[in-house]
Amino acid sequence: MKCNESVDIMLNIIYGEEVDPEKAYGFFSHLKECTSCDLEFKELSETRVMLGDWVAEEEEVPEKEAVAGIHLPRRRVNWWGAVQKIAATLLIAVGAVAAGQAVGLIPEKRVEIPEGQLTRIVNDVVVERQSEGWVVIGKALVSLKEDIDSRDRQQTEVFYEDLTEMEERFLRVMEENQFQSREMTSQ
């Protein structure tokens, strides 16, 4: 018997599994000749003994939490779960198609539009653009008008101030003239 053949029988013997008597005899004969397999057999047996000694102290099932008390759910069809699965599958499929189209694996589907419908769409777009243009022009006009009004107001104010100043000057000159007239009259 070779060393690599002995491992299988070694485990069977250590764990009390069924062993062919002839093979068992061959194995023990091999151990007498092979110190390495003999040592391995002893070590594995000792390890097994140690494992057998190792007891989980809290391994007992707690009485009050016995599984028999499990609240068994109703066996029924999980519709919500099914819907979720279908939705997820659809999403994945759509994503896969999009990815395929992006890398060119799947040809994109061409959309055929009738001529009449295309004309209407183009017209709608043009009208929409024109409307947008008029809105812009209208806004510009309003802004310009406000600007002009503002300037007019400023100019009127200046003119008013000038007039006021002229009036004051005129009144002053008048007063001076009257004063000089009175002086001359008194003389």
Binding site: E58, E59, E60, V61, A66, V67, A68, I70, L72
Partner: peptide, 24 residues
Amino acid sequence: RGDDCSFSELARRWEKKIFGFVFR
């Protein structure tokens, strides 16, 4: 066949072994 009591009995028989396995 739908007999919950039978399942509970099965669970009672196996719970200790399964608990030991899981705890380890």
